[in-house]
Structures are given as C-alpha cells and as structure tokens.
C-alpha cells in the first residue's frame, strides 16, 4: 500500500502546488462573500419602500457622483487586470505601477462614497431615519468597507513586491487580489443597478 509516489513533492513544485490551493480557497471565500452581499441585497429588497414618512432615495440620490464612481471602479477593475498581465510578463515595476493606479482609483471611489454619505446625512438621511436608509447605508457601506480593506491589502502587497519581486507567493497574492477587486466591481454593478438606477426611477 505504501508507495513512493510524490517523487517531486518538495522544492518549488510543492510550493507552487500549495499556492494553487490558496487560490481555490480564496475563490471559495469570494463565493461566501457573494452570500454575504446576497443577504444584504435581500434585506434591501424587502426594505425598499420602508421610508416611514422620511425622505426617499429618489429625492436624495445624486446620479452624477454615482456615475463617476461607477466608471472609476470599472476602470480600476480593468487596471488590476493589467497588473496581472504585467506579472505574467514578469515585469515587477509595471506590475507595481498598475497596482498603484488601481489603488489610486480605489481611493477616489472611497472618497466619493464618503462624500455622498456626508451629503445624505446632511440632507437628513441617516442609518436611524427609516428601514430603507438603514438598508441602504449597510449595503453600500459594506461594499465601501470591502474596497477599503482591499486598499490596505494592496499597499501591503506593493511593499512585498518591491522587496521580494515576483515569486510563487506574491504571484498567488496578486492573483487573489485582482480576483477580489473584480468581484467588488461586480457587486458594485448590482448596487448601481438595484440601489441607484432603480432608486431614481
């Protein structure tokens, strides 16, 4: 029963294999995050008309800012893809540069969102205003939080790339990060459609 397989089970191959495992695990994590957002969307859908006499989305949403954030995030999803392309070509500097562009776009997105939230609160729509606004702030805010965590991660990763270059570990990390970033863009598309577009109809 005991056999001498695994002839090449150590050294780089083992490492590569192990890093591949982590990519699958991260995929599964992203799917669990889909469920997380799905639950928030379900709550939003149920609370969609629970204004309790307070302001409605239609009254307060300002589409121009939202459209700007949408295209910014979409572009950042694209640039994070370009980062992966640079990595596959083995170009560390280009990789870091594209990640930096992605991070700047992400930061701009977060700033716009914070702006939007302050504006809304100024207009009298807070978490405590009504079921609708509770659901709104939680759904959009959770997405914003995810983007912020992604930025934190991106900075750490750029530092590691600078120090260690492209290897099995950093390669896996860049792959996962770009996957995460694309995922956040997809969530935003649904947010944009369900919350904002349907909100102003």
């Amino acid at each position: 029963m005991m056999a001498n397989h695994h002839d090449h089970s150590h050294g780089h191959d083992h490492h590569e294999e192990h890093e591949q495992l982590k990519v699958l695990g991260f995929w599964i994590f992203v799917v669990t995050d889909c469920i997380l957002f799905g639950t928030l969307f379900a709550t939003y859908a149920v609370m969609m008309h629970s204004f309790a006499g307070g302001p409605t989305g239609k009254e307060l949403f300002e589409l121009p800012g939202i459209i700007a954030s949408t295209f910014i995030l979409l572009t950042s999803s694209f640039t994070s893809g370009l980062a992966v392309l640079a990595m596959n070509k083995g170009k560390v500097k280009e990789l870091i540069a594209w990640l930096a562009v992605t991070a700047v776009l992400g930061l701009a997105f977060v700033v716009l969102e914070v702006n939007e939230f302050t504006h809304l609160m100024h207009e009298g729509a807070t978490m405590a205003t009504s079921g609708f606004w509770s659901a709104f702030f939680t759904l959009v805010g959770t997405h914003g939080l995810h983007v912020s965590v992604g930025l934190f991660w991106m900075v750490a990763l750029m530092m590691q790339l600078k120090r260690r270059g492209i290897n099995a570990v950093t390669r896996r990390k860049v792959t996962n990060l770009s996957l995460y970033w694309h995922f956040l863009d997809v969530v935003w598309i649904f947010l944009f459609t369900v919350v904002y577009l349907m909100g102003v109809m």
């Binding site: 405590a128 079921g131 509770s134």
Partner: peptide
C-alpha cells in the same frame, strides 16, 4: 447589532422595520 447600537430600523417595530 446595528439596530441596537446605531438606531437602525431593520427589525424594529417602528421606522419601517420588520
């Protein structure tokens, strides 16, 4: 927790919660 901590109205009896 948001209901309890931040005064949200997800599951409250008023404010459109359910």
């Amino acid at each position: 927790f948001l209901d309890r901590f931040a005064g949200a109205h997800f599951f409250t009896m008023d404010g459109g919660g359910n």
